[in-house]
Amino acid sequence: MNSLQIKPYNQQLQVPYRWSKGTQYVRRGLLIRAEIDGHVGWGESALPPHVNYDGWSFAAHCSTLLTGLDAHSTDFLAELALREVSPRLRCGLSSALYTAKAASQGQSLAAYLAGDTMTPLTRVPINDLINEADPAECVQSAAAAIALGQNTIKLKCTAERALDIARVKALRTAFPDLIIRLDPNESWAVEWALEQIKVMEGFNIDYIEEPLPRGTDLSVYAQISKQTSIPIALDDSIRSPFHALRAIELGAAKAFIIKPPRVGGVDETKALIELARAANIRCIITASLETSVGLYVALHCAALLGSFVEPCGMGTARFFKNDVAPPPPIIDGYMHVPETPGLGVDPSTWWEQH
Rank of each mutant, 00 (worst) to 15 (best):
G149Q: 01
A34F: 04
P341I: 01
L178N: 11
E274V: 05
A233E: 00
Q12K: 14
S237N: 10
T99D: 13
V26F: 05
R33K: 14
H39Y: 13
E186L: 10
Q11K: 12
Q150R: 12
H72Q: 15
L289A: 11
Q107M: 15
G106W: 13
I197W: 14
D116L: 03
I331Y: 02
T119G: 06
H243G: 01
N204R: 13
V266D: 12
F203W: 10
S141L: 03
G251R: 03
E137W: 09
S292M: 02
G92V: 00
A34W: 02
A271K: 12
A136E: 13
G202I: 00
F242Q: 06
G149A: 02
Q105H: 06
S104T: 01
I224Y: 11
I179V: 15
R239S: 12
P327D: 12
E79R: 12
P8T: 08
T122Y: 15
R33H: 05
Y98S: 01
C138S: 06
N204D: 15
D332G: 00
K154D: 08
R181T: 08
D70I: 04
L245V: 01
F256G: 00
G149Y: 02
A144D: 15
P176K: 11
I230G: 00
T119A: 10
D128F: 04
V220C: 12
E352F: 05
H39Q: 11
D54K: 10
